[in-house]
């Protein structure tokens, strides 16, 4: 497998191996993501794509290999790890908005607690971001009062409030009702257009075609194939990818 890389690398995984007990969930994974690049990771369930995404901010630890972000090796724990995580935005499948905080507080919490911004400054920026993702008028509600699609857009705003270098999306639309998927994807597409570096684990092939610079296909803990979306969807090189695509695209 060859990576066709042009720009400067921001996230680099080399020789990454991880086991869950005896299950080898990530096997010799090498992946470099350039600044401004949008990488979509697809694959059957259990292929390790979510785990891969979660290793990048060390929500999952790895047993072998190295992950660097902006040239800095991921610290194992403590303040250094917290500091690095603050530069990596993460959007979860189940939104994970803080249930006891208002929408506005969800977005200001990181900037205030981690970045040390003043409350007024953080709120001003939070309102801008909430407007940008189309939920500005919901700022004073609590998460449970919002629809899934709205909650996920708030989660994106919460991540953006930290001015991250890279954003990780771990199946951001998988828990959404069908009619809410597009409102979240639209926000993600606009982020991609604005040059955000993104790693997106998803089953949304439409998003991959529209916004990805590169599609990474995983199976059984390995990266089987990585190419631009056009090539991947029209002429996948591996049998495994052909099989996977035939199953998901034909109905």
């Amino acid at each position: 497998m060859t990576d066709v890389q042009t720009g400067d690398p921001l996230v680099r995984l080399s020789g990454v191996n991880k086991w869950f007990g005896s299950l080898h969930v990530l096997q010799d994974v090498d992946l470099t993501i350039d600044r401004g690049e949008v990488v979509v990771v697809i694959g059957p369930s259990g292929s390790g794509k979510s785990t891969l995404c979660r290793t990048i901010n060390r929500l999952e630890s790895i047993e072998q290999g190295e992950i660097t972000i902006d040239g800095v090796k991921l610290p194992e724990e403590g303040k250094a790890l917290a500091a690095l995580r603050s530069d990596v935005g993460m959007v979860f499948q189940s939104f994970n908005l803080f249930a006891h905080k208002t929408i506005l507080e969800n977005v200001t919490l990181g900037p205030v607690k981690v970045r040390g911004k003043s409350k007024a400054e953080a709120e001003k920026r939070a309102r801008e971001l909430l407007d940008r993702v189309g939920v500005g008028h919901q700022a004073d509600k609590v998460p449970a009062q919002l629809s899934g699609g709205q909650q996920q857009r708030v989660a994106i705003a919460r991540a953006l409030a930290m001015d991250p270098k890279v954003m990780l999306f771990d199946e951001p639309t998988s828990a959404l009702d069908p009619e809410m998927i597009n409102e979240v994807l639209e926000v993600m597409v606009s982020l991609a257009r604005d040059g955000m570096t993104m790693v997106v684990v998803t089953h949304e092939m439409g998003f991959a075609r529209r916004a990805a610079n590169r599609v990474v296909f995983m199976d059984a803990g390995r990266i089987v194939e990585a190419s631009d979306p056009e090539t991947f969807f029209t002429a996948p090189s591996s049998d495994r990818a052909k099989d996977f695509l035939s199953k998901i695209l034909n109905h």
């Binding site: 901010n57 929500l59 403590g78 303040k79 917290a82 500091a83 690095l84 995580r85 603050s86 530069d87 990596v88 935005g89 993460m90 979860f92 189940s94 994970n96 908005l97 803080f98 249930a99 006891h100 919490l109 990181g110 607690k113 981690v114 989660a155 919460r158 991540a159 930290m162």
Partner: peptide, 24 residues
């Protein structure tokens, strides 16, 4: 997921415990 979201934002163990987990 609540603690993971807190850690992903860059809160350390003590902060995520006192501001996110314990209040809930």
């Amino acid at each position: 997921g609540q603690a993971e979201a807190a850690r992903a934002l860059g809160l350390d163990f003590r902060q995520s415990l006192t501001t996110i987990v314990l209040p809930q």
